[in-house]
Design a protein around this nucleic acid. Structure first.
Length: 491
RNA sequence: CGGGGUGUAGCGCAGUCCGGUUAGCGCACCUGGUUUGGGACCAGGGGGUCGCAGGUUCGAAUCCUGCCACCCCGACCA
């Protein structure tokens, strides 16, 4: 098979592409900027979806589905929103093809032009708020807590598998509230749901904070986010939650009768994570041998590899594996018995590592004799002989252990790559030599933010929500600052 | 949208500069056998409109013109 992976140190982006392609997560497609998510990759996405969906339901949300197409006029209703997305919208102008009279296949039928063009949604605030107007008359109709799983299209200049593609899958929550306090609370609640998910399920530590003006969602009053650090020292925004104030309610005229008989505009939030999380997952944990998956999101948690020299041995080994597999299955562990006779064990071992199965168990004739099994863990690449009697318990514990260890490693990496600097020179030096998160004082102005971005390519990833107040001076202007903010070069 | 690169079998490539049998190689695939505790070996076999369209020529993967696609780097963005 010869699935050589480019070394991470040699060429990080090639390493990333190699893993995505060779581990079978995704494939390039015939369409520019669009990818095919392959079954193994999609299985991971399904696990992500299942857990997040449960968390949304547990916080009182329901799923619904809104149209892919949005009338162009909706976009002009919220000024900053249009400005944010106008440059990357795909537009439907016609609804019919016809045979080319010159015989060159089909052409767009010029007769079939739409009266009003449709925008392929880059996000759904406009269509949803246009709909909510009809659903909300009184405070009794509130809150509305809806989520949708959908695809969206943003016409990007440059694409990267999972991290940035023209079409991607995501979920977007859109809620409507009676008061500002309630909407703010919802916004914060959901960013914490994301943080919880990232840390407990993906094994990926994240910072929680507020976006600066320059990084804020188009149309939001405040954007909260979770931000993770990738192994190349670049930051990756992994989820956002927006407090939209009354901006969309005003744009779409969504008013409600309050308890005291007045009319008021509805308060809104929206929040989302996308298949970009898949990219984050790859870059957070994987190594030069391939993918490393946290057990909680691994489609296959334990792979069995039989070792044998002849049919007789195979029969004995298989029988034992089937029994052990059944015991693990009964514990809710997803297992694979790799009994292909077309490849050798060594090949299977390499493949298990490439695909990131957290645990691999090899059983051969000697194990049958001794009542043991060779248990290898993907995260540390170490192996140990375990007695078959204790195997189930051992595996159950080991899966937890691996989940913890992956998180701990990532956390350690982030801590080692988070720096505090007090001068602009030091700031640039750290960025160039080490990367990572750089904590520095900032005077809070858009001008300084833009200047730093222009000169160093680093952006303010977030203003920490739990940030310790600390008097200091802006590294660029020397103006007073109340707390450090997090800078980084980002994806 | 700027810069660079690539397009030849499923994948990775050679061949292109300097046109000339039947377009090669490795991996993968198929058949048979031997193998199987870290990416097996031997033998045989199948698979190609050389990205597309024109042109030059007795003859084009190779030269010329145009187009298309994808990747990488940058600006923009989740």
């Amino acid at each position: 098979m010869a699935k050589e992976i480019t070394s991470k140190n040699e060429n990080y982006s090639q390493w990333y592409n190699d893993i995505v392609i060779k581990a079978g997560l995704a494939d390039y497609s015939a369409v520019r900027g669009c990818m095919v998510i392959k079954p193994y990759g999609y299985a991971i996405w399904e696990k992500i979806q299942r857990q997040l969906d449960a968390m949304f339901k547990a916080t009182g949300h329901q799923n619904a589905y809104f149209p892919l197409f949005i009338p162009k006029s909706f976009f002009s209703k919220e000024a900053s929103h249009v400005e944010g997305f106008a440059k990357e919208c795909a537009i439907v102008t016609h609804y019919r093809l016809k045979n080319d009279p010159n015989g060159n296949g089909v052409i767009v039928d010029p007769e079939a032009e739409l009266e009003e063009e449709l925008i392929v949604r880059p996000t759904s605030e406009t269509i949803i708020w246009n709909t909510y107007r009809n659903w909300i008359q009184s405070y009794r109709d509130l809150p509305i807590l809806i989520n949708q799983w959908a695809n969206v299209v943003r016409w990007e200049m440059r694409t990267r598998l999972f991290l940035r593609t023209t079409e991607f899958l995501w979920q977007e929550g859109h809620t409507a509230h009676e008061t500002m306090e309630e909407a703010v609370e919802e916004t914060l609640k959901m960013v914490h749901v994301y943080a919880d998910f990232a840390e407990k399920w993906m094994g990926m530590p994240v910072l929680i904070g507020t976006k600066s003006e320059g990084e804020r969602f188009a149309g939001a009053i405040d954007t909260y986010c979770i931000e993770a650090l990738m192994q190349d020292g670049k930051a990756l925004q992994a989820g956002t939650s927006h407090f939209l104030g009354q901006n969309f309610a005003k744009a779409f005229d969504v008013k409600f009768a309050t308890k005291d008989g007045n009319m008021d505009y509805v308060w809104a939030t929206s929040w989302g994570v996308s298949t970009r999380l898949m990219g984050a997952l790859v870059m957070a944990h994987s190594d030069d041998n391939g993918l490393v998956l946290p057990p909680k999101l691994a489609p296959i948690q334990v792979a069995f590899v039989p070792i044998y020299k002849n049919d007789d041995e195979l029969a004995k080994v298989s029988q034992r594996i089937v029994e052990l597999k059944a015991m693990l299955d009964a514990k809710g562990i997803s297992t694979l018995f790799d009994n292909r006779d077309t490849v050798k064990p060594g090949f299977k071992f390499a493949e298990c590592e490439l695909k990131g199965y957290p645990i691999r168990i090899a059983i051969g004739p000697k194990d049958i004799e001794k009542g043991t099994a060779e248990v290898a863990r993907r995260d540390t690449l170490t192996k140990e002989f375990v007695s078959q009697e204790n195997l189930v318990e051992y595996v159950v514990n080991l899966l937890d252990n691996i989940q913890d260890n992956i998180y701990r490693k990532a956390l350690e990496f982030r801590e080692k790559n988070t720096f505090s600097v007090d001068s602009y020179e030091e700031f640039k030096k750290v960025l160039d030599e080490k990367g990572g998160f750089v904590m520095a004082h900032w005077d809070g102005t858009r001008e300084t933010e833009d200047l730093i971005k222009e000169e160093t390519k680093a952006t303010i990833r977030l203003i920490p929500n739990d940030g310790k107040k600390e008097e200091g001076k802006c590294i660029v202007t020397g103006k007073p600052s109340a707390q450090r903010v997090v800078f980084a070069r980002a994806y």
